[in-house]
Simulated scan of single mutants.
Amino acid sequence: MAKVLAFDVYGTLIDTHGVVSELEQRLGALGKAELAPEFSRRWRDKQLEYSFRRGLMGAYEPFVRCTEEALVFTDRALRAGLSDTDRDHLMQIYAELPAFPEAEGALASLGEAGVTCVAFSNGTAAAVEGLLEQAGIRGYFADVVSVDEVKRFKPDPAVYAHLRHRLESEPGDTWLISSNAFDVIGARHAGLHAAWVRRSPEAPFDPWGIEPDLTVTDLDALAERLG
């Protein structure tokens, strides 16, 4: 079959730090606007940590639960003092995060080149569908594949096997596209090809002896190489 590109969503297509401006407003009302960038970074890091821990424990919960628990933890760790209303609002904002500026154009180019694209996420199918729709890029994807269907989280090998099963594809025909090094390593370990979207030139790749097949700076560069 033809090559299929399976795009990670959070951090790859969707800018998880798009919440910073809202954090600045909410924290600004508490006189702590300067905490916003650090709050956003810690929230994202803890969200992923909680998914890893739940995976190891065999205690799966939908990704939104990890996100909410990470928000509460970060609020406590930074002593930010957010109210329940603030946290509820921030969770709603997280469901409406923007796509990276180049995402739509790159996806359009890939589609014109005849490349099949799917979204492949730790989020539930419903959450991802809504996120991609409001970001204006849902129409570029042939399908949405969620780890929720197997109740595991990336980088569990079972989720990459599930992706191949859903796509009815061979590992050599399937590319994982992600800005998350752990996801790239997980996909390569499972026998898939993988491209790392290295959005920050300072970002190091994990020294595990498993390298991406391709490293690009953004999705435009990806479309040029794989389109």
Rank of each mutant, 00 (worst) to 15 (best):
Q25I: 03
T12F: 13
S109Y: 01
V197F: 09
P37I: 01
G31T: 09
A36W: 06
F73G: 00
R198V: 01
R138Q: 10
L82K: 00
P212T: 02
G55D: 12
D183G: 05
P37E: 08
Y160E: 07
A221T: 02
R65D: 15
Q92V: 04
G136W: 05
L56D: 08
V150H: 06
A6K: 08
E133A: 13
D88N: 12
G191I: 06
E170K: 13
A80E: 03
W196C: 09
L48M: 13
V144S: 07
A221P: 00
N122Q: 07
L56H: 06
S169G: 07
M1K: 14
L107R: 03
P155V: 02
C66M: 14
R54F: 15
D213M: 06
H17W: 10
L90W: 02
P155R: 08
D206Y: 09
H17M: 14
M57R: 10
G31H: 06
R53T: 14
S40A: 15
K32M: 07
L97F: 13
H17D: 15
L27I: 00
K46E: 15
P101F: 12
S179K: 06
T217E: 14
G31K: 05
G227P: 01
D86R: 01
S200I: 00
L5R: 03
Y60E: 09
T215M: 09
S40C: 12
A126R: 14
S169C: 12
T217G: 13
F52L: 09
L97R: 06
E133Y: 04
V19H: 08
E102H: 06
D45P: 13
R76K: 13
P207W: 07
T85I: 06
L71P: 00
G114T: 00
W196D: 06
R138N: 10
R65C: 09
V216S: 04
G81L: 12
D8F: 11
W175S: 00
V150W: 11
G31W: 13
G209Q: 10
P171H: 11
A187S: 04
E22Y: 14
E34I: 01
G81M: 12
R42G: 14
G136A: 08
Q134Y: 04
R188H: 11
A195L: 11
G31V: 10
A108G: 09
C117T: 05
L56W: 15
G130S: 08
A106R: 04
F73E: 03
E34L: 10
G81R: 05
G209T: 07
A77T: 04
W208F: 13
G81E: 06
E129K: 11
A113I: 04
P171Y: 03
V115K: 04
I137T: 03
A33K: 14
E22F: 12
A194H: 05
E68Q: 15
E211L: 09
T67H: 15
V184K: 03
T74K: 07
A70K: 02
Q92W: 09
F120S: 05
Y10I: 01
A194W: 05
A190Q: 11
R166F: 07
F141R: 02
G31I: 11
V144A: 06
F52G: 00
A95M: 14
D156R: 09
A2E: 14
I137H: 05
G123P: 12
A135L: 07
G55I: 05
L167P: 10
Y140E: 03
R225T: 04
F182W: 15
V128I: 13
P98H: 09
Y10D: 06
A77V: 10
A106K: 06
A187E: 03
